[in-house]
Design a protein around this nucleic acid. Structure first.
Ligand code: MN
Ligand code: MN
Ligand code: ZN
Ligand code: ZN
Lengths: 147, 147
DNA sequence: TATCAATAGATACTGGGTCTCATTAAGCCC
DNA sequence: GGGCTTAATGAGACCCAGTATCTATTGATA
């Protein structure tokens, strides 16, 4: 378990190094903290977990990681934007409104549908943003058990 | 043209009155300003157009209108959230990345698709947020003409 | 037209995020 | 390993969107 988490954090750092960014100890700390999150998080969450780091440093690291695509932003139902470890490339999220957990949705099959709809409005499709809200499996189970 | 715009603004006010909110002159001003926008706008945009109003008042009116559903928030491609006159009920936006205009997409036919995908992940769907980005008809035409 | 709650406006405050600038530390070459 | 160069850090000021608080005003209703 420990091993795997570190591996994840290392991946984040490697991504930065590939782009020519230095591997610094604040960045290692941020990477590790991100790897440890189990649901979408805010910069403030990280800050609480890394009180030794400068605030700007956390924001800067986060920004780099978002730019390189290994961290993405998720839109909560209330309009709040938070961060999350990301699969690279296009994907969406199944966000549990109960426990706040997020599950990645890798295949995106709505593109064709949107293409059609867009075209019928004379609109030349170039991208989309989709978030899906509901209840995750374990929250559904819990609710059933509670009855 | 003028007439129609005023009619729109009046609709906004009526919606508030229906909910028991008073029809005040600041609210009339905000409603009118919103009716005049032709693309997604920020509270700051309104403020620039209504320098006589208190800042808090603009935010408060905007909030009420969002709560009653006659104004909605749109997510720009860069993660910025702005406001926009809204069709009531569930709908999406075709957002032109060129000119910033927004066109409402009324029918939402992805629900069935999402339902399926969600179910296959043990996820109990309850809602979604979708924004579509691309080029609107007039921007497409312009680009063709420019070649 | 008097009453009185709802609203407005001024202004302080919060939360997320960026900018500046002096100091520190990676990375690299020897 | 020691020095050089430059990127990165941290402290703090600052910015922007939005909220809270408080007193003064105003709209609805009788
Ligand atoms: Mn997609
Ligand atoms: Mn929809
Ligand atoms: Zn859940
Ligand atoms: Zn356009």
């Amino acid at each position: 378990m420990r091993k795997r988490v570190n591996a994840l954090a290392e991946q984040l750092l490697e991504t930065l190094e590939e782009r020519g960014y230095r591997s610094t100890s604040p960045r290692r700390a941020v990477a590790q903290a991100i790897a440890n999150q189990d649901k979408p998080f805010t910069a403030e969450d990280l800050r609480g977990q890394l009180p030794a780091l400068g605030r700007a440093t956390i924001f800067r690291s986060l920004k780099l990681l978002v730019e390189t695509g290994v961290v993405c932003r998720v839109l909560l139902e209330d309009g709040d934007l938070q961060y999350q470890l990301s699969h690279r490339g296009h994907h969406h999220h199944l966000l549990c409104v109960e426990c706040g957990s997020s599950q990645d949705l890798l295949g995106c099959d709505i593109e064709a549908l949107l293409q059609q709809t867009s075209a019928s409005h004379g609109f030349e499709l170039s991208g989309h943003w989709l978030e899906v809200y509901g209840r995750c499996r374990s929250c559904s189970v819990k609710e059933l058990a509670a009855v």
